[in-house]
Structures are given as structure tokens and as C-alpha cells.
């Protein structure tokens, strides 16, 4: 008599472990859900977003709105207003950056999460984990501020494949106030212009993509704040360390 059951196939069981503490994917989802708006963590079916992203005109892209939980976005905005910014170490980059947000702050926790494997899992899951997004690592997270007169000349961030997410924390800007993320394949005429709208995120494929940020006008109601995360395939030689 044989008491084992060697016959395939395996019975179908619901995904996951009874001990949730063993389920790393579930933990990472929970982690993402502490920051990201529920629709972009638990939304279904994620796979539909991938063709939308891929076939977007000019540059593969997608906008998320609202991107973060409202209370999280508000807390980060408060932390950004208090954070220590310094001019970028490349003088040509007319922006201020915050390199080390306070660790216990919401901004600090969001920064840490964006630099973690958990954030990669989130961005992959957002698109239904397509094969094209396998092997990404969190390459860089940049907290930046632009005040009157600052902007960013046309540039290319990286030649590596992957995804860039720009989280926006600017309030009250009209088109005339500037601060728009503009994609300029050639010259200065944008094919896409992303206005700085509070609690939105712009997701795009950055490889070789030329873009700029328009100057912040003198009458802008306050600084332009963004947090930009790069999730790329490892090839450090291709990153322009801005």
C-alpha cells in the first residue's frame, strides 16, 4: 500500500501562505499600500495598463491621479516644505535637492521605500508584471525643488531600459507659472507637457528620452516639488548622475 499520492497534477489551492508573514509578495503589497493610492496597488486587471503605457504617443507613459493616499501626499508636502535642500552639485542643473530626508518623517519613509525592492515589486505589479519589466532595480531616488528662475535644460537621464516615476507635490500652479515636465525629442517644442499637479505621478520609459522642465515663473505660488524614482536594469555606465 502506498500512502503518498504521486499522481500529477498538483491540486489547485488558492495562492499564498496561511502564515502571511511568509508571503513576501503580500507584505510588499501591504508596504506599497501604505503610500500608494489603493487603485494603483489593488486595482485589477493591471495587465491592461501595460499596452496603454507602451502604446502611448511619443513616449511610453502613463499618469496616475491621485497617485498617493491623500493623507500621505499631504504629509509629504508638509515634510518637503521643512526639508533641507541644497543646490545640485552640478552647477549646470538649476535645481535644489534634498539628499537625506529625516528618517522618521513620512518623506523619509517614502524615500526609503522608493529605494527598496518593494517599490520595484509595486511598479512591476502596476503593469501586471510584464516580461519587459523583469530585472529592474531601484537605481536612484531624487527629491528636488525648483524656485523662481530655476528649471532644467533639455537632457537625457539614462540610456538604460526601465521606468521612471515622477511624483508631484506642487500646489496651485497655472500653466503660466511654469514647472512643466516637457518631452522635447528635438529643439524646444514639447510633444508632451506634464503640468505640476499635486498628488499625481507621471510614469515613463526613460531610455534615451530627451526632456526638460520649464522655468518656474516669478509669480508662481510656491516652489515646485517632485520626487523622482528610477527603476532600471543594471548598467551603471549609462546613468547621467543628475
Amino acid at each position: 500500500m502506498i500512502w503518498d499520492d504521486p499522481a500529477p497534477p498538483l491540486p489547485t489551492a488558492p495562492d499564498g501562505f496561511f502564515c502571511r508573514s511568509l508571503d513576501v509578495d503580500a507584505q510588499r503589497r501591504d508596504q506599497a499600500a501604505t503610500f500608494i493610492a489603493p487603485a494603483f496597488v489593488h486595482g485589477r486587471p493591471a495587465r491592461r495598463l501595460w499596452p496603454v503605457f507602451q502604446h502611448a504617443p511619443h513616449v511610453p507613459h502613463l499618469s496616475l491621479a491621485p497617485a498617493l493616499r491623500p493623507e500621505v501626499a499631504a504629509a509629504i508636502a508638509r515634510d518637503l516644505a521643512q526639508a533641507a535642500f541644497a543646490p545640485h552639485h552640478h552647477a549646470a542643473y538649476r535645481i535644489d535637492v534634498c539628499r537625506r530626508p529625516a528618517p522618521g518623517s513620512v518623506l523619509g519613509r517614502f524615500f526609503t521605500w522608493l529605494a527598496s525592492a518593494g517599490a520595484v515589486t509595486w511598479i512591476q505589479a502596476l503593469f501586471g508584471a510584464p516580461p519587459s519589466l523583469r530585472g529592474l532595480v531601484p537605481r536612484q531616488v531624487q527629491i528636488s525643488r525648483m524656485v523662481t528662475g530655476q528649471g532644467f535644460a533639455p537632457h537625457v537621464d539614462t540610456l538604460d531600459d526601465g521606468v521612471t516615476v515622477v511624483f508631484q507635490f506642487t500646489r496651485g500652479y497655472a500653466a503660466a507659472h511654469g514647472g512643466a515636465l516637457a518631452f522635447v525629442p528635438a529643439g524646444t517644442v514639447p510633444v508632451i507637457a506634464v503640468p505640476p499637479v499635486f498628488n499625481t505621478a507621471f510614469v515613463f520609459r526613460p531610455a534615451g528620452v530627451r526632456h526638460t522642465v520649464t522655468d518656474v515663473a516669478a509669480d508662481a505660488p510656491g516652489p515646485r516639488y517632485t520626487i523622482t524614482a528610477f527603476f532600471l536594469r543594471p548598467d551603471p555606465s549609462n546613468l547621467d548622475d543628475k
Partner: peptide, 15 residues
């Protein structure tokens, strides 16, 4: 936790 679907996860790993 005694729900049938939840307990079926024991087929993935005992506890």
C-alpha cells in the same frame, strides 16, 4: 481563518 478557502492555503505549506 477557518474559512474553506483560507484553510486550503495549507496545501501550499503546512503550519
Amino acid at each position: 481563518d477557518l474559512d474553506e478557502v483560507r484553510l486550503a492555503q495549507l496545501q501550499n505549506a503546512p503550519v
